[in-house]
């Protein structure tokens, strides 16, 4: 049995509205200034919308702090992750900026851990390209700081964007691998529960009702012919990663000999006015070389037959009458 590696990247550029306190703070960073907020007799940096002790909403009384300050605590990051603001070894530090009473956690670029110590002075360095995000700045030992002439940007920062991109890797669970191999071979492989006798496709590797784990001995080949039990017409909504553009029929098909419908089967070549519940259809597989199961993964919520079915063709048999369509799907 071949292994099927699965890998996907969950990626989205989140657009955050930072509000009346973090907004000006980020505007400040873009413009080369670090702002704290007055909270009673203290100055908080990073600023907060409220007094952390009482919950009282603070009025937007900002104070410029820094650009230098004292390292209160630090750790040397020998192997930065892809998400860290500096891609060479660096320190995360708590920095209490001059004029502030609380410390901000941020990155310090230094020659090495020997160059770091609690109590040392550091200075803000602003990046050449600033976008109104907390990563517009980092810190360096005070002596390493360069003079910077910063041109303020235009307007207030109303949105701060955070591209979150996470990659997940693994391989298909054994029953999914056999299902995927079946699709490549032009077959629908499901599993029959030895307890209930019910056939599920794609199987989840267990009988969810009897709570028993199924084995390869429970695998069964299911007929490629079935009945349309319901459908809808999808007008694709555009979002990041969506490649569908034109409306299409999405049908729920009950394969003969199975007890669980295949949802969301794309129908691209049967005219809508000919398509109907009760219609008998048969999966026409693509030629073997064109079959692709990259979309099959371990995520049962979106069961897929991958890209192996060229089309669902009407068999020409009489429709299954409405009263024989299973009440349940």
């Amino acid at each position: 049995m071949s292994e099927f590696p699965v890998s996907f990247t969950l990626e989205y550029p989140y657009t955050r509205t930072p509000g009346p306190v973090i907004g000006p703070f980020l505007t400040g960073l873009r413009d080369g200034r670090i702002l704290g907020i007055r909270c009673g007799s203290r100055v908080l940096c990073p600023p907060m919308e409220f007094d952390p002790d009482t919950g009282e909403t603070l009025s937007p009384d900002f104070v410029e702090v820094g650009p230098s300050g004292r390292v209160e605590n630090w750790t040397w990051i020998a192997e930065p992750t892809r998400k860290h603001p500096l891609q060479e070894p660096f320190a995360f530090a708590l920095v209490k900026l001059d004029g502030a009473d609380t410390a901000i956690t941020h990155a310090v670029k230094a020659a090495g851990p020997e160059a770091m110590s609690t109590g040392m002075r550091v200075t803000a360095q602003f990046r050449e390209e600033r976008v109104g995000a907390v990563s517009d700045v980092y810190f360096v030992p005070e002596g390493d700081a360069r003079e910077q002439a910063i041109e303020p940007g235009e307007g207030e920062v109303e949105i701060t964007t955070h591209l979150i991109s996470l990659t997940y890797e693994g391989k298909l669970h054994p029953h999914n691998a056999r299902y995927a191999q079946g699709l490549l071979d032009g077959k629908f492989i499901g599993q029959r529960s030895p307890v209930s006798g019910k056939v599920g496709i794609p199987s989840r590797g267990y009988d969810p009702i009897a709570r028993v784990v199924l084995t390869p001995a429970d695998d069964v080949e299911i007929s490629p012919t079935g009945t349309v039990v319901s459908y809808t017409v999808i007008t694709p909504i555009q979002y990041r990663g969506q490649t569908e553009t034109e409306p299409y029929i999405s049908a729920t098909i009950f394969l003969d000999g199975s007890d669980q419908a295949l949802p969301q089967q794309d129908i691209r070549d049967i005219p809508l006015d000919e398509f109907r519940v009760g219609m008998r259809v048969r999966a026409i597989f693509r030629p073997p070389a064109e079959r692709n199961v990259d979309a099959v993964d371990n995520d049962w919520m979106y069961p897929t037959v991958g890209d192996v079915v060229e089309r669902w063709a009407p068999t020409g048999e009489p429709d299954v009458p409405m009263d024989q369509i299973p009440e349940t799907m």
Binding site: L26, K83, F92
Partner: peptide, 13 residues
């Protein structure tokens, strides 16, 4: 999400 997550501030650090 505004002042720490974009720095990749992780539990190990």
């Amino acid at each position: 999400p505004y002042v720490s997550a974009p720095l990749g501030l992780d539990p190990v650090s």
